[in-house]
Design a protein around this nucleic acid. Structure first.
Length: 498
RNA sequence: GGCCUCAUCGUCUAAUGGUUAGGACACCAGGUUUUCAUCCUGGUAAUCGGGGUUCGAUUCCCCGUGGGGCUGCCA
């Protein structure tokens, strides 16, 4: 806990937060957590959770990214109150919620800043700026704009504008003093103004930068709390300066720690999946993703680790979010997915498995499927593992004859056991159920002085074709008497050549 | 280079100015089981380093070290 940490500034109403992603491709798991923390904070305060699309960089815009984003947020259960909706319409009175449709608003505000003397036109070329940075770095100076255009004469500006000379608009950052704020998770933060760059607010293509659009929108949309990734911390003084320049009150800020690669760098595509969609496709449950990501950088202080979304709303506390980054640990994700798979109602599990089985062209309905999935569920980490694990129930297995042989027993013994089993089941008259097959077979083993290992192991392998699988009796029941005998005979032929 | 920031087992984390530094994942061993998995029992494993304050520091302060973020007409 940082000293100086601001006491939880909660009110019971009027809280408005936003999740403001850029449609540049896929929803990052780090963004999912940012969205989640915003959502939890809004819900626990009866506040509003707003979705805004920050697409001011046309060069990085990806077709379809917004739609996929909306779908994923819906899938994981983060319902938003305002913003673009799945039906293509918008909800909320502060719209449009897509920044590319708000350019007039930003233009107007940029002009206002220029009039007030808080912003200025800059005609410097990219070339000059690059050289400037190089020189500064070579001289061990901070790399920032030198303010060449800041004092430009009004008549010169007017003429350059008249000639359509390319330009940007920059924030005129005060040279003196410092900009301070109190971050809900970071505590007190202070930045010297002389080290804050004259940030570009409007690009030469007329689009605003993040800094301008974000501040204007957050104010206009009456956002009370900005909960965002830690990478924004060092830009926050610029934003505060902007609020001041407009004469607005800044919102509260909460900068949450980054999600990290195993090597502790910022979580990136290079080192594994980062798209929520990729995890969904592999059969990580939406609830698990939410649960898992909630616990990265925050915990309730109890030993409970499994939380539903409603439970998270109750116990989440933004002031207890950590300051250090957290490695995104796949092993623990797997474990948590397992926990959910093991504990969820079977019929529900069957339902969510269906798409994965259909994709693998396996039989997909009925009581039989439910039994099969029931048998395999404790063995699997994610839904995409089901098709391969379950395949032998639908198709005759192919396997190496050698694996029929139990430990140090020999081919001769195993062949004899298989023959005994075939003969026994051929004349089997009890109910063909797991219970009866088991009881009768174990009785047979005792009576004939066989051993469990040399009898049951080859039986199971004959039925499943695997060294690891559920028990032979459960498989036999599902396969049915005829198929069971067929597979035992196939095993006999494979191992003993008959 | 500059600015900011962070630091407890391998990982996610709990706790405290005085504890055998707790839990979870992973790992190892044992038990159960025809196998794997599940399940049960046990185990290995951490307060980055140096100063200071203090009777006592892992906890508070300073310095260092290491990591990370930002340093774009990206967000």
């Amino acid at each position: 806990m940082p000293k100086n940490k601001k006491a939880c500034p909660r009110t019971l109403s009027g809280i408005r937060v936003r999740f403001a992603p850029s449609p540049t491709g896929f929803l990052h798991v780090g963004s999912l957590r940012t969205a989640l923390y915003n959502y939890l904070f809004a819900r626990q305060n009866n506040g509003d959770f707003i979705l805004r699309i920050e697409d001011t960089d046309r060069t990085r815009y990806v077709e379809g990214a917004v739609e996929s984003l909306l779908k994923i947020l819906t899938t994981v259960g983060l319902r938003w109150d305002e913003g673009p909706m799945l039906d293509g319409k918008e909800k909320g009175k502060f719209g449009p919620y897509v920044q590319s449709e708000r350019t007039k608003i930003y233009k107007k505000h940029a002009e206002e800043l220029i009039e007030k003397g808080h912003a200025y036109h800059c005609f410097c070329s990219a070339d000059r700026l690059e050289k400037l940075r190089e020189t500064q770095q070579a001289n061990k100076l901070p790399t920032m704009y030198d303010g060449l255009c800041r004092g430009l004469d009004k008549s010169i500006i007017a003429e350059k504008l008249k000639n359509n000379q390319p330009h940007v608009i920059r924030l005129a950052v005060p040279k003196e003093g410092s900009t301070n704020f109190n971050d809900v998770v970071r505590g007190a933060a202070a930045f010297e103004n002389k080290l804050i760059d004259d940030q570009v607010l409007v690009k030469s293509d007329g689009f605003p930068t993040y800094h301008l659009a974000n501040v204007v929108d957050d104010h206009l949309m009456e956002i009370t709390d900005v909960i965002r990734g830690d990478e924004w911390l060092s830009s926050t003084p610029k934003h505060i300066l902007l609020y001041k320049a407009f004469g607005w009150t800044p919102p509260r800020f909460a900068h949450i720690p980054l999600l990290l690669n195993p090597d502790k760098s910022k979580l990136s595509k290079r080192q594994g999946d980062v798209a929520v969609e990729d995890y969904l496709k592999k059969g990580y449950l939406p609830e698990v993703l939410i649960n898992f990501v909630a616990l990265l950088g925050w915990n309730p202080g109890t030993e409970q680790e499994i939380f539903s979304l409603p439970e998270l709303i109750k116990v989440f506390d933004i002031t207890k979010v950590h300051q250090a980054g957290a490695v995104f640990n796949l092993e623990k994700l797997d474990w948590m997915n397992c926990e959910y798979i093991k504990k969820m109602p079977l019929n529900e599990l069957v339902k969510i498995c269906q798409p994965f089985l259909v994709g693998a062209c396996l039989e997909v309905a009925g009581q039989k499927l439910e039994n099969i999935i029931g048998l395999e569920r404790e063995r699997l980490k994610k839904l995409i593992d089901f098709p391969a694990a379950v395949e032998f129930f639908f198709k005759e297995p192919r396997y190496d004859a050698k694996i029929l042989i139990w430990k140090k027993s020999d081919q001769k013994t195993i062949c004899s056991r298989l023959k005994t089993l075939i003969k026994f089941y051929d004349t089997f008259t009890w109910d063909w159920s797991e219970q009866w097959i088991e009881q009768a077979t174990l009785d047979l083993i005792i009576k004939e002085k066989l051993e469990n290992g040399t009898t049951l192991w080859p039986m199971r392998v004959a039925l499943s074709g695997r060294e690891a699988s559920p028990g032979p009796f459960a498989i036999a029941e599902i396969l049915g008497k005829e198929e069971t005998i067929k597979r035992l005979k196939a095993a006999l032929a494979l191992l003993c050549g008959k």
